[in-house]
């Protein structure tokens, strides 16, 4: 099965060149690393170049940067209060990185960084690590109040606290798997329908006529995947804000 028909093939990591290895650790530059750097270059280039003019009346491109800024700033302010604004660069970087790499991954023959488990797990662990360290550093033992909902009788607490602990522990899992699963499944589904087009067109005229249906499906699914790409970036960001809010104000 070639690249065009095998839906799994798009996740292959291909080595482009290697920087050699340090202490047995391969510093290979792969297509995954290339796409990460491309995402970073697009985000930084966009934000820095469009705001170069510092226009008092913004141009259209500058307006996109400003709207993104205002959107994220507003999201943090409404969910964590003004105290959460110190995490603004982090949340902004997370949102733009996930959004751009999700959307880039939708282009044919592009590699989808966010459909690599290790990438989403690393981002989720980064968020949860910051939540735990900041929460403990700022609140000390009071941080444990996130496991104890207020206004609940002691007897019920015996049941509720383990559930809260479990829910807290499942947060990094669900945070990473949601992004990973959505992008992976979306990419596979689009690829499966595109593969139908390829294999049907090989069957001659009848096949080509029959391929119209999966082609239309591929187009529709690509549109849906653009929606999902933006939605998952938003979901990851809003959950990050909610978790950061727990670290800033424990005890709900």
């Amino acid at each position: 099965m070639g690249y065009a028909t095998n839906p799994i093939k798009q996740f292959d990591i291909i080595e482009i060149f290697s920087f050699g290895s340090i202490n047995g650790f391969d510093l290979v530059f792969t297509n995954s690393a290339l796409m990460m750097l491309v995402s970073v270059a697009i985000i930084s280039g966009w934000l820095i170049l469009t705001t170069r003019g510092r226009g008092l009346v913004p141009s259209r491109l500058q307006l996109v940067s400003e709207i993104t800024y205002g959107f994220i700033a507003n999201m943090i302010r409404t969910s964590t209060g003004s105290e959460g604004m110190k995490f603004f660069p982090l949340v902004f970087s997370l949102f733009t990185f996930i959004l751009v790499s999700n959307i880039l991954g939708l282009y044919p023959y592009f590699f989808s960084v966010s459909s690599q488990l290790i990438v989403t797990v690393a981002l989720a662990l980064l968020v949860m690590g910051i939540v735990i360290f900041y929460g403990v550093w700022k609140n000390g033992f009071k941080f444990l109040k996130i496991f104890v909902p207020s206004g609940i009788p002691l007897v019920v607490l015996i049941i509720v606290v383990p559930i809260e602990v479990l829910s807290f522990l499942s947060r990094p899992l669900s945070l990473s798997l949601r992004l990973f699963g959505n992008m992976l499944a979306g990419a596979i589904v689009v690829k499966v329908f595109a593969g139908f087009v390829v294999s049907l067109t090989a069957m001659g005229l009848i096949g080509i006529i029959g391929a119209i249906l999966p082609l239309a499906m591929t187009v529709a699914l690509t549109g849906l995947e653009f929606l999902v790409a933006a939605l998952q970036a938003f979901v990851f960001t809003i959950l990050t804000c909610v978790y950061l809010n727990d670290a800033i104000h424990p005890g709900h």
Binding site: M75, T78, S79, S174, L177, R178, F180, G181, N182, A185, L231, F234, V235, I238, L239, V242
Partner: peptide, 20 residues
């Protein structure tokens, strides 16, 4: 809307678990 997306995300995560 934010709460809607939050509920959607939490619900959808369970489906993603089975996909996983």
């Amino acid at each position: 809307f934010t709460n809607l997306i939050f509920g959607f995300a939490v619900t959808e995560a369970l489906g993603i678990f089975s996909l996983l």
